[in-house]
Each structure stands twice: as C-alpha cells, then as structure tokens.
Amino acid sequence: MARVLINIPAAARRGEIIPIRTLIQHTMETGYRPGADGEVLPRDIIRRFTCTYDGEEVFSAEFSPAIAANPFLSFTLVTTNSGPVVLRWEGDNGFAQTETREITVA
C-alpha cells in the first residue's frame, strides 16, 4: 500500500464548497528515463484517479507521465449528505488503491 496524505474537512454545512487535497506516494516512472544500466526503465505511472461521493463520481483525472512523482491533486466538491468520500487511484502493473474518508454534513 502506498502512503497517502488526504486533506478533507471532517464536518461541513450542507451546500458548502469544500476543498480536497490528495497526495499519494508513487514514483511515476515516465518510461523515457534510462536506469543505471543504460536500459530505459519501463513506464510505471498512475493513470486514473476518481472521487466518488454520495453515489456519484464528482471528479476524475487521467494522468500522463508528465505528472510529477507522488501525484498531488487539489479540487473541490459541494457537500450534500453525510457519508463516505471514496478516492481511488489506478495505474500500471495492476496498481489500485482506494481510500475512504467520512464527512459529516450538518
């Protein structure tokens, strides 16, 4: 499991726009860089990120090798109901990680 840093407010008012910041540990090997032996290292990147909240995909992203190592993403969402915010990263070599954070909406 890759280490993640996720910043989501634990509580918010209904209809409030809340910021979400995520960072996941990943080398994001571009596939253009030679290693110590001179051979080009095979590509190993996170290709897709999705954020699902209250039964709907609110935000998704497709990454290229041009995304820096340890991909950082910041975006916003509108609070509707209390429940889980599900963040999922998928990538090369079967990489998949899902993180869930509960949010309380008053």
Partner: peptide, 13 residues
C-alpha cells in the same frame, strides 16, 4: 456540477 468550482491544482514535469 457537484464539484462546485472548476478548479484544479497539481504538480507536473
């Protein structure tokens, strides 16, 4: 529309 704002921040190469 449920994203609330059309804003995106990341780090690139």
């Amino acid at each position: 529309p449920r994203a609330g704002r059309a804003i995106l921040a990341t780090n690139i190469r």
